[in-house]
Amino acid sequence: MFTRAGLLLTWKEIRPYFIFSIILFFAGMVIGGTPNAPTEYLEQQMKGLEGISNSIRTSDNPEWTAFLLITANNILKTIMAMGFGIVAGLMPISMLVLNGMILGYLLSGFSASGENVFMLVVKGLLPHGILELSAVFLACAFGIRFGLTLLGG
């Protein structure tokens, strides 16, 4: 299973689902960045993120608190995406689209306020997003595959 050949075989099986996960996430970003985005829902999600942001800001060690909160959240969400894929893969699909919508909504808001979105993406998202998003896409790919396999596909 953890041999080079086993990992390559697993990658060949999961690659289409991985690509589909990426497409879903970026489709969500496009939806969230459009003027017709469900702004009420996205604003509610932003309020939830404000609570986390405030707890990080008021912490004695904000960097360590941010690291721990984000890491714990990511681990929980990826495990949930894989496990709840059992329900026809709906949890990972909705997670990808909704998180993409939130990111698209945020980026469009920054753009509207005159921020340099390119630099924001390069400096703020890419450094942690390369590993984090790859792990999320992989976990969701396994969740989607799990759900479709149980449906008989």
Results as ranks from 00 to 15, higher is better:
residue 120 L to W: 10
residue 73 N to Q: 13
residue 10 T to P: 06
residue 108 S to D: 01
residue 30 V to N: 04
residue 123 K to M: 12
residue 95 M to K: 04
residue 63 E to T: 08
residue 70 I to F: 05
residue 90 L to P: 02
residue 28 G to V: 05
residue 114 G to E: 00
residue 34 T to C: 07
residue 37 A to S: 13
residue 9 L to F: 08
residue 106 L to K: 00
residue 99 N to C: 10
residue 31 I to Q: 08
residue 69 L to Q: 10
residue 120 L to H: 12
residue 136 V to S: 11
residue 127 P to N: 08
residue 48 G to W: 08
residue 91 M to I: 11
residue 46 M to I: 09
residue 103 L to V: 09
residue 129 G to Y: 13
residue 57 R to N: 12
residue 131 L to T: 15
residue 98 L to Y: 09
residue 77 K to D: 01
residue 131 L to R: 15
residue 106 L to E: 01
residue 128 H to C: 02
residue 16 P to Q: 05
residue 12 K to G: 06
residue 23 I to A: 11
residue 13 E to C: 02
residue 51 G to K: 05
residue 66 A to D: 09
residue 98 L to F: 12
residue 43 E to A: 11
residue 43 E to T: 13
residue 40 E to T: 11
residue 107 L to S: 08
residue 47 K to N: 13
residue 95 M to R: 04
residue 118 F to N: 13
residue 24 L to H: 03
residue 118 F to A: 13
residue 138 L to Y: 14
residue 136 V to C: 10
residue 122 V to S: 02
residue 96 L to Y: 03
residue 110 F to N: 14
residue 60 D to G: 14
residue 81 A to H: 01
residue 63 E to A: 09
residue 12 K to V: 03
residue 37 A to F: 06
residue 39 T to R: 12
residue 98 L to C: 03
residue 132 E to H: 07
residue 67 F to T: 13
residue 72 A to M: 11
residue 138 L to E: 09
residue 31 I to V: 15
residue 137 F to V: 01
residue 105 Y to E: 00
residue 112 A to G: 02
residue 21 S to W: 02
residue 92 P to M: 07
residue 26 F to E: 05
residue 98 L to T: 09
residue 53 S to A: 12
residue 14 I to P: 04
residue 81 A to V: 00
residue 139 A to K: 03
residue 52 I to P: 03
residue 12 K to Q: 13
residue 21 S to F: 00
residue 111 S to N: 00
residue 70 I to T: 14
residue 55 S to P: 01
residue 33 G to W: 09
residue 44 Q to N: 15
residue 52 I to D: 01
residue 24 L to F: 02
residue 96 L to C: 03
residue 32 G to E: 04
residue 122 V to F: 05
residue 7 L to R: 13
residue 98 L to K: 05
residue 33 G to S: 10
residue 80 M to P: 00
residue 19 I to S: 08
residue 82 M to F: 15
residue 132 E to M: 08
residue 6 G to N: 07
residue 7 L to F: 13
residue 55 S to W: 06
residue 90 L to E: 00
residue 111 S to G: 04
residue 22 I to R: 02
residue 131 L to C: 07
residue 131 L to S: 13
residue 20 F to D: 01
residue 65 T to W: 12
residue 105 Y to L: 05
residue 101 M to D: 02
residue 29 M to R: 10
residue 137 F to W: 14
residue 29 M to N: 10
residue 60 D to S: 11
residue 34 T to K: 00
residue 38 P to E: 00
residue 13 E to I: 01
residue 97 V to G: 05
residue 89 G to Q: 06
residue 47 K to M: 11
residue 10 T to A: 12
residue 19 I to W: 15
residue 133 L to A: 07
residue 41 Y to G: 09
residue 85 G to H: 10
residue 71 T to S: 15
residue 125 L to K: 01
residue 74 N to A: 04
residue 20 F to Y: 09
residue 42 L to F: 00
residue 70 I to E: 04
residue 134 S to R: 08
residue 62 P to D: 08
residue 37 A to K: 11
residue 109 G to D: 00
residue 104 G to Y: 02
residue 107 L to D: 05
residue 131 L to Q: 14
